[in-house]
């Protein structure tokens, strides 16, 4: 199964490498947000983020933008699955003895790795415009691990929805409908004390919150590994549950 996953992963990676522009396009939006929001809110949000040990809004906001990149980058994984189903590529895999789990897993892994690369680019830009982040190898790795797991979870959800809905239009609609509220109903943009009570409650059950918090815990100020560990645990559960749902949906594809 792992070998199957690896070869399919290679295939998807090759395809992505053939159209690097597309990967760059998904970066435009988070980049714009990074540049515009940090400028826009610079004077508006004076208070330093709680628990971040001081620092400017940009420091607080960068992890949010990283998560946003993950959100935008991995939520469309399902669309390409539908295309592959229509094009007969999936049938071509299904008719071979390849592990069915590997088909989903390779797609999700590919998407998550792509997201990690994208967030690294964003990180580079953030560093260039003066964000003050912990970019040591350990903290960077931990942050990326968290983002990778978020990417796995989101891509798996997207694939699962794709199989359940079977159509591109509602899938795109759900993608659009989900991403923005997920962003704003989490602590990606504003720290908890700024939130109205009900949003704070929602943010508690929003996996995005934990992804952001775990990244913040290691990348801003003094690393808080306890908070990170909790966030990572939530991310692992999220990724695991989404993935098993996607796999079971895919197994049910056989009509």
């Amino acid at each position: 199964m792992l070998a199957d996953t690896w070869y399919l992963f290679l295939k998807y990676t090759k395809i992505t490498m053939r159209m690097p522009l597309w990967t760059l396009f998904t970066l435009i939006q988070p980049l714009l947000w990074l540049l515009i929001f940090t400028q826009l809110f610079k004077n508006f949000v004076q208070a330093p983020a709680p628990g971040s040990g001081g620092g400017s809004y940009i420091d607080f906001f960068v992890p949010g933008v990283l998560i946003m990149t993950a959100l935008f980058g991995s939520s469309w994984s399902g669309v390409s699955l539908l295309r592959e189903i229509t094009a007969g590529t999936v049938d071509k895999m299904l008719v071979s003895p390849v592990s069915r789990i590997a088909i989903v897993l390779s797609r999700v892994m590919h998407s998550a790795v792509q997201v990690v690369i994208q967030t690294l680019i964003i990180l580079l830009v953030a560093w260039a415009i003066g964000a003050n982040l912990n970019l040591g190898p350990v903290n960077l790795f931990l942050g990326m691990l968290s983002i990778f797991l978020l990417g796995v979870g989101l891509a798996a959800l997207s694939n699962g929805f794709a199989i359940t809905l079977q159509r591109e239009e509602p899938l795109v609609m759900i993608g659009n409908l989900m991403t923005l509220p997920l962003m704003f109903l989490s602590t990606a943009m504003v720290p908890k004390p700024f939130m109205p009570g009900w949003i704070e409650t929602i943010s508690l059950i929003n996996p995005i919150t934990y992804a952001v918090e775990s990244v913040r815990a290691v990348m801003i100020g003094t690393p808080d590994y306890q908070a990170y560990g909790f966030g990572l645990l939530i991310m692992t559960v999220f990724a695991g549950v989404s993935l098993s749902w996607a796999v079971s949906a895919f197994n049910g594809l056989r009509d």
């Binding site: 159209m19 094009a87 007969g88």
Partner: peptide, 10 residues
Amino acid sequence: AQQTGVDYFL
């Protein structure tokens, strides 16, 4: 199959 299941970008 009826649809050519080959990957166009490979």
